[in-house]
Design a protein around this nucleic acid. Structure first.
Length: 550
RNA sequence: GGACCUGUAGCUCAGCUUGGAUAGAGCAUUAGCCUUCUAAGCUAAGGGUCGAGGGUUCAAAUCCCUCCAGGUCCGCCA
């Protein structure tokens, strides 16, 4: 039962259309509260008088059988829910039916031949979490890894490889990174290198056999490494069509832009002016050397995806530094007459920084994601050896907990904020962390195992403040899911799970579950079982495993 | 110079979408809690001009304006 909705209906019956309810800060006041200030303003009456009048009317409404009582407390109407009704409702599991809508989520999108750095963690796990939450809520989801497998950078890489031949069969990504860094270092002194890079890319785009072969080799070696990481992060994609996939799809788009009179030539490049859309910077769709640019590919990609998937929404989980690019992209689509540009959204995130400044691949300042994962799993294993040395399958649990810590760290705060990278914070297992939530789950599982009794929900027996608070949090889950989807912010779910864990830990601390009163034990086991299942579900939506023991 | 994002406790962050009762957590500090269900836990204390100033409102961390600080971007990288 959704009490908020039920109370809203009761208030609406009194002629109040726009209802917002609050959970009072002090539970002694009641379970939900309706502030009468807006109504007082509208009706030009004292809010206290309105509260008294409403409370009296609702108290006699037979539809309010879930209410214990209604009271006017100053300018608020307070609704006291029957505690048995509240707890009973907490045991209901939300059910989502397929809603017939389809969302395309582009995320992760690392660059081929570059290391998978900590910067790509954000897009990978935020997109992954959104994907699972949408799926859970009944959407059909298409996850796309828009690989950066095309562009001038490959010209530079090929130029570097030809200039300084290197054996890249061993540890390919690190070797390729060294070439990339060396290229940029030497290009500082010798600007002709950049021209050479552009020339190699032009040849690649023209189908030069040698360059194409090199490109294929770089791509293949990179993908093998990426797949290893995706497996550990529990992320998968419906499509890995990268930028190269759209090579043969850009000419028609360019033709369409020209035919609609949207392009003009400027300093040798082909551009689209967007001042009329409120964007001062024009978008370049063809460079002065005749080569394409990412804006062209993203245009072709968007149009292709609409045709292929006919999405209701398309999300681009990409760093906030590309905000202007996406504004330009959506504006161009709109100008081309594609109304569905409204359905496209840039889901921006802040970046990982050092406290000294931005990380730069070009300067070789990179935190490799595999190093982070390895450190986390090592520390996790060390903790297990300390706290639970007899645990079976230590390595597997250490993997689940270590990876869980890293993913949760990334997902627990608002994606718009920058994160200053700090090993100690990322590898912390205490407080508001993934391992804390996992630990709570493992502890609940342990109680269920130890008792061995069959749980039996009995709201009449679950009346302590800790049980009521826990029930209320369980009840808030569908709201949380709705908020995550509305804002495309998985941290709302991460926070919900932290709150749930804190509440159940307080309950655990204060009340015995296994005890002589077997009816009470079975009732409390049911609450524990429900909470454990909810934590497992929530963590799985974030891409985190919930081990039974740790 | 322009655009967008961020600014809340010593540190890291929730809360702002939808204004409302005493602004919440975690870390760190201090004092407690393991002969009983996993102490990766729990309880309590101290710690706040919610960046600054104006405005709207009965009521502002929340909405509007100006300013300040940090970050990002501002045509041929993505």
């Amino acid at each position: 039962m959704d009490f908020k909705a039920a109370i809203a209906r009761l208030l609406e019956a009194q002629g109040i259309a726009d209802v917002t309810l609050e959970v009072p800060p002090d539970s002694k006041l009641g379970d939900y509260a309706f502030p009468c200030f807006p109504l007082a303003k509208e009706r030009k009456m004292a809010p206290q008088a309105i509260a008294q009048e409403l409370a009296a009317k609702i108290a006699t409404d037979p539809a309010a059988d879930f209410l214990e009582r209604v009271a006017a407390t100053g300018p608020y109407v307070n609704f006291f829910i029957k505690q048995t009704a509240l707890v009973a409702a907490a045991f209901e599991e939300p059910e989502y039916q397929p809603n017939g809508k389809r969302v395309v989520i582009e995320h992760s999108s690392p660059n081929i031949a570059k290391p998978f750095g900590i910067g790509h963690l954000r897009s990978t796990v935020i997109g992954g979490a959104l994907k699972r939450v949408y799926e859970y809520a009944g959407w059909e989801v298409v996850g796309i890894n828009h690989l950066g497998d095309w562009g001038t950078q490959f010209g530079k890489l090929i130029a570097a490889y030809k200039r300084w031949p290197t054996d890249i069969t061993e540890d390919p990504i690190k070797k390729l990174l060294e070439l990339y860094v060396r290229f940029h270092a030497e290009a500082e002194k010798d600007p002709t290198l950049d021209d050479a890079g552009r020339e190699e890319f032009r040849k690649l785009e023209a189908g030069d056999p040698e360059n194409v072969a090199l490109w294929k080799q770089f791509r293949e070696l990179s993908l093998q490494e990426f797949d290893r990481i995706y497996a550990r992060l529990h992320v998968s994609f419906e499509s890995t069509a990268g930028e190269a996939f759209y090579n043969d799809k850009m000419i028609p788009v360019l033709d369409e832009l020209k035919a609609k009179g949207l392009t003009e030539e400027d300093e040798g490049a082909l551009i689209v002016r967007l001042e009329d859309m409120g964007i001062q910077t024009p978008a370049i769709v063809l460079k002065s050397d005749g080569a394409t640019i990412y804006a062209t590919r993203d245009l072709a990609a968007a149009i292709y995806r609409k045709k292929e998937y006919n999405f209701d929404r398309m999300l681009y989980e990409v760093g906030s530094e590309q905000t202007l690019h996406f504004r330009q992209l959506f504006a161009m689509l709109k100008k081309m007459g594609h109304e569905w540009a409204e359905d496209c959204q840039h889901i921006a995130h802040g970046l990982y920084r050092f406290d000294t400044g931005k990380m730069s691949t070009r300067k070789g300042q990179v935190i490799f994601i595999e190093d982070v994962l390895q450190q986390a799993v090592e520390r996790s294993l060390k903790t297990i050896d300390q706290k639970n040395p007899d645990l079976l399958e230590k390595e597997m649990v250490a993997e689940q907990v270590g990876i869980g810590a890293v993913i949760f760290f990334d997902l627990r705060s608002d994606r718009l904020k920058d994160i200053v990278f700090d090993w100690d914070e990322m590898l912390d297992f205490e407080g508001e962390t993934g391992p804390y939530v996992q630990y709570t789950h493992a502890r609940l599982c342990s109680i269920l195992r130890k008792s061995g009794l069959e749980p039996k929900a009995n709201p009449e027996l679950l009346m302590t403040p800790e049980e009521i608070a826990l029930a209320r949090q369980l009840l808030a889950f569908p709201d949380t899911i709705e908020q995550v989807i509305k804002n495309d912010k998985p941290h709302i779910l991460a926070r919900h799970l932290l709150d749930l864990s804190q509440l159940v830990n307080s309950f655990y601390q204060k009340h015995r579950i296994i005890q002589d009163d077997k009816d009470l034990e079975r009732a409390r086991l049911a609450l524990i079982e429900k909470t454990a299942a909810r934590i497992e579900l929530g963590l799985s939506l974030l891409g985190i495993m919930a081990p039974q023991e740790m």
